[in-house]
Design a binder for these strands. Sequence first.
DNA 1: TCTTACTAACTGACCCGTCAGTTATTTCAT
DNA 2: ATGAAATAACTGACGGGTCAGTTAGTAAGA
Lengths: 207, 207
Amino acid sequence: MSRPSPKWRRRKEARPGEIVAAALEVFAERGFAAARTDDIARRAGVSKGVIYLYFATKQDLFRAVVRDAVTPNLAVVEAAVAGVDLPFSSTARVMLSVLTEVMATSQLGSVAKMVIAESGNFPDLALIWHEDVVSRALGLAARHIEQAQAKGEVRPGDPRIHAFSLVGPVLTGVLWREVFAPVGVPSFDLKAIAEQHIETALEGLIP
Amino acid sequence: MSRPSPKWRRRKEARPGEIVAAALEVFAERGFAAARTDDIARRAGVSKGVIYLYFATKQDLFRAVVRDAVTPNLAVVEAAVAGVDLPFSSTARVMLSVLTEVMATSQLGSVAKMVIAESGNFPDLALIWHEDVVSRALGLAARHIEQAQAKGEVRPGDPRIHAFSLVGPVLTGVLWREVFAPVGVPSFDLKAIAEQHIETALEGLIP
DNA sequence: TCTTACTAACTGACCCGTCAGTTATTTCAT
DNA sequence: ATGAAATAACTGACGGGTCAGTTAGTAAGA
């Protein structure tokens, strides 16, 4: 009996990430107020006190969840269309399929739901989300649309509203999945929405 | 001084509606869990006990809020396009402008936000919302699109995804307003989005 | 043996739901 | 008509449960 396996291990470096991951799950399921720190701790495999070694308050933890989910995805879409100079139809296709891929594989959908839900209680988060994600993505799309309009490749009109026309259906599909999939309503395939919609957006519904 | 004005009046019929209206405000601002029944009561001009004369629990009140906000708006969009047999482009225009009008003037935007936020905690509400609102509206649009496809007026493709293409940008605009307007980010005019987008959806972005 | 990551029991604030008491309104007797 | 008795809408203080955050003590690791 050299060593009985310990009841727990000291893992200072791994804890914060594990706690944030567990918190994302619980916050996404229950919302901020109804999420219990005990549940988050249990799901992260630690006791509640550990949370408060790494995060000052539950609110801080929530902010960290949003930040960590957003940050790595920020650059992806931007990088995908940076510096390319293709016809607008190609650029638009790339933008929408990359956005769809990111929304489908990352946790951005859950986080978006959380930000929508808690915008009233966390105005600062709504602002950060706007500045770091929404306005950036919308601005990127609008800029490309504006350039294409200058070349006569896209019809006149507010380029930011054109951006809405482009991404709105996919975002609606993401929220559909977040809300209805857990209660058993069949979801739409995001990729199918994106692929059919990009044709509609470019060519119109009328043949 | 025949009668000193009373501290309160008995208004059995008016109370439930006033309480639901106040609850909608507070729930929309704070979310279900963070909303305090005391606040709702104060805003309705009654004491907290009155809430429990008319509603069994806070959850019941929440359900009543969602039901009452949905019910009167259900028929409006359906009525607008029932029995008409116009070219698809006209039908689509009517559908989208009526939907936009309803979303802009009613409380459906706030309620949608609440349902998104609390779908995890109130699966029954998510189901009701799906059956009574979303699936009905989507089915209505999809049916019209299908008929138009049969006449060759609309390109092939999943009619329900085509419906997403039609309404997605407006719904995105509604949520934008719900989330960002309270924190000072300028909103888009829903009508402007609808009017520009319907052209895009019908004719495409490419001239 | 000493440091510290971690546990688990604890505290205190908060808030839902209750209920004993209060007051507006109605009904009934005169 | 008029006041007294009955009814029921309403108030507001409080009990009790829940949960965020704290801390005394334990065990891992060096």
